[in-house]
Design a protein around this nucleic acid. Structure first.
Length: 482
RNA sequence: CGGGGUGUGGCUCAGCUUGGUAGAGCGCUUCGCUUGGGACGAAGAGGUCGUAGGUUCAAAUCCUGCCACCCCGACCA
């Protein structure tokens, strides 16, 4: 059964699946739309998780855990929320050999159950702000799934906060958007456009949604993280109230925000070449792989010993290192394996070079081999190179995006831009939702966001739809998306 | 749910038109020989051909139903 599944996938033309499976990040599970995250893929997730977890704590949040099962009735309390999520919920109807009187939903997100508890825990303005986060799995029964980008079950972090004023909630929303931007750009080396979503694209139940949008190498945009200002919507639905300084009962102002294992998809589709995956050093499970050139049936102890010493030197500088001293596998196979896995640097330790105090270093991002690297001071050299690679990979992605962003002033130019370079089309918009319908029907595209970093001039650049110039027009980014 | 496609050793597939009881390459195991970019040779292990039924002396092959998965679309982090 699973054999068939694998077979189908390898035949498929999905570059994403091809890279992810070859790099041993994940594999398909027996359950439709679900994936098994393999150790190498999970190690990347753990890197991302530990980096982000620290940032979440540094911004004053506490981790907690809410249960996976949510009473079905909870979902229905917030009108827009039910409408948005009900179709994709998996529901538990039986337990303990009996049909349940109240069905349980496998959480698609936790606003409802968390608000149920917020309502209980919050009484006074003195209890605010309450800033929680949880690392969890969620289930969304999507009609079409894609490895990492959209799986029926995925891992994520969801932050949920309560505040006493709208302004404070708004500030929180933008703070976390900034955290995501930093995570993506400084660690995953994925440049993002941050901005607000349009009404039709916002989270079901939110007042407004902010997003970080990345551009993948196939020209598609990816919503890499979202931060929502929920205002009082859920508080009203769940009775999350507090008494303010004036002894008046008020509904709490809330936010929620999340990023998921989709981030791994962003890395895969954001950084790869013909060989396979290319990992930014910051999130690579191991940043350097040491491969000793071993001879079968000969005494390799000297080479192995030298390799171990080098490994220790790298460890001492905090460099994540893997020494592959398997004697049963040729180095050619190893070279290939680690290239597919995207390990940033490969250090080759051979008898010949070692005699001359030299090593061979190979950069994954440029696929360049550097012989005659001095053995002495190797750890410092490697540390420097890793920093350089991190920067170079980011710049490579940034360059790609620049080459795939086109400013357009009318629908013809827009249509052309979405096809020819692909990627983002930047333009002004008068807010008429007709545009979104045209995009969807004719171009399979959407408005990704109204970017924070604007490049156009509302006093000169016309609306892409009406052709009119107006100070009321908004700048937008359009793209086909995952 | 609509359109298209696929189910045969671990993987990729051939065989099916013209039924005769299953093959190749890769991978795996052992031995030999090699070893600074996916070596080579020899021997070997491994499949109730997605599933249920039908036709037939005989079904991977023909017929019918069912199931699963993949791709495209509607939906979405």
């Amino acid at each position: 059964m699973s054999a068939q599944t694998k077979e189908q996938l390898s035949t498929s033309e999905s570059l994403l699946a091809d890279i992810a499976i070859k790099a041993q990040l994940a594999d398909y599970s027996p359950v439709k739309g679900c994936m098994v995250i393999r150790p190498y893929g999970y190690a990347i997730w753990e890197r991302i998780k530990s980096i982000l977890d620290q940032m979440i704590k540094d911004t004053g949040h506490e981790n907690c855990y809410f249960p996976m099962l949510v009473p079905e009735s909870f979902l229905q309390k917030e009108a827009e929320h039910v409408e948005g999520f009900a179709p994709e919920c998996a529901v538990v109807t039986h337990a303990g050999g009996k049909e349940l009187t109240e069905k349980y939903v496998l959480r698609p997100t936790s606003e409802t159950i968390i608000n149920h508890m917020f309502a209980k825990w919050i009484e006074s303005y003195r209890d605010l702000p309450m800033k929680l986060n949880q690392w969890a799995n969620v289930v969304r029964w999507e009609m079409r799934t894609r490895l990492f980008m959209r799986t029926s079950e995925f891992l994520w972090q969801e932050g949920h906060t309560c505040h006493s004023t709208w302004d404070e909630a708004q500030e929180e929303t933008l703070t976390m958007l900034g955290v995501y931007k930093t995570l993506l750009q400084d660690y995953l080396a994925v440049p993002v456009e941050s901005g607000k979503k349009t009404e039709s694209e916002k989270f079901a139940g939110a007042e407004s949604t902010y997003t970080v949008e990345a551009l993948m190498r196939d020209g598609k945009a990816l919503q890499a993280g979202t931060s929502h200002n929920l205002s009082q919507n859920f508080a009203k639905a769940f009775g999350t109230q507090f008494t303010n300084e004036n002894n008046q009962l008020e509904f709490a102002y809330q936010t929620s925000w999340g990023v998921s294992t989709r981030l791994i998809g962003a890395v895969v589709m954001g950084h790869h070449d013909d060989v396979g995956l290319m990992l930014p050093p910051e999130i690579a499970p191991y940043q350097v792989v040491i491969i000793p050139i071993l001879k079968k049936n000969k005494d390799n102890s000297e080479i192995l010993e030298a390799s171990k010493v080098i490994e220790q030197e790298l460890h001492a500088l905090g460099i994540r290192t893997k020494l592959d001293n398997r004697e049963t596998i040729s180095q050619g196979i190893k070279f290939n394996e680690y290239e597919q896995k995207g390990v940033p640097l490969r250090l080759v330790v051979g008898a010949r070079d070692l005699e001359q105090g030299m090593l061979e270093l190979h950069r994954r991002d440029t696929q360049s081999k550097h012989k005659e690297i001095a053995r002495k001071g190797i750890a410092e050299l490697v540390a420097g190179w890793l920093k350089q690679i991190q920067t170079d990979i980011y710049n490579r992605a940034l360059e790609f995006r620049a080459g795939h962003t086109t400013t357009v002033t009318n629908l013809e130019e827009l249509a052309a831009a979405l096809d020819k370079p692909g990627g983002f089309a930047r333009c002004m918009w008068n807010g008429d939702i007709k545009l979104e319908k045209i995009l969807k029907d004719k171009h399979k595209a959407t408005i990704r966001c109204m970017p924070d970093e604007t490049k156009l001039d509302s006093s000169k650049d016309p609306c892409v739809l009406s052709g009119k110039v107006s100070g009321d027009n908004t700048e937008i980014l359009i793209a086909r998306a995952y």
